[in-house]
Design a protein around this nucleic acid. Sequence first.
DNA 1: AGGACCTCCTGGATGC
DNA 2: TGCATCCAGGAGGTCC
Length: 279
Amino acid sequence: MPELPEVETVRRGLTALVTGKKIKKIDVYYPKMVLPNETEFVKQLTNRTIQEIERRGKYLIFHFDQDVSMVSHLRMEGKYSVHSHEMPLNKHDHVVFEFTDGTELRYNDTRKFGRMVVVPTGEEYSVAGLKTIGPEPTPATLSLDYLTTTMKKHHKAIKSFLLDQNMIAGLGNIYCDEVLWLAKIHPLQPTNTVPVDKIAILRQKIFDELDLAIRAKGTTVFSYLDASGHAGSFQNQLHVYQRTGQPCERCGTPIERIKVSQRGTHFCPFCQKLVEVDD
DNA sequence: AGGACCTCCTGGATGC
DNA sequence: TGCATCCAGGAGGTCC
């Protein structure tokens, strides 16, 4: 499931592969995937040239000439790849952008959860999801003050808080579990009961972990690959995610798995104790 | 505010 | 072996 590091890896790969290319033709094999509708999507993007690819949280934003942009979310299993026009399509290739140079950008998505929205440049943030997105998790954009203030306002489980893209952008199931283990916070700890010193540690762990993961070109889970078809390697640096029953690297206690916000959640019951706090 | 649950999807795992 | 059923999950939605 691509999260911030994986989407950033895709953005970098695609930037190198398709910047400057002009779209000649678009084939949509699963119309629900493109918005506002297939006709408008194809009309707006045909003959446009890709100028820049941006990322915000887990969203990719393609900027074209003529003030046209496309907001793309990979959701669970979305993948972009670049091939020559002659290469046969793969199963689950749903949208194909054919360029004037004989190559094409293909969007493949087994579960069909991904969506692409074409909008006038400047209106990207009117797209649902981006409209209310929280700060980017970098030292410059996610201040300790914001995090402390916001966390004091919410009573829900810290894992649910971290997963909420309106609170902080970019974290998904894998990195939430990882940063909570790193910061030694129980995933069910009510957000407003996390002590200030722990909040500062958590914030720093988020920055460090995302930096590390981006440097490893993301985590490869199931079928996820980057834009050039290469697998990331960060799965080798995970401490708790999908390690149920294996010993905690710090204390040896078997990692446990529970459900939080409908998500499989992994943690060390010894290192990450639920702290009772009156509030 | 936030939990509980549903929907969208498919393939891999599990059950018998 | 084969068929049925369950499960995973990001985000958006409803209901209470």
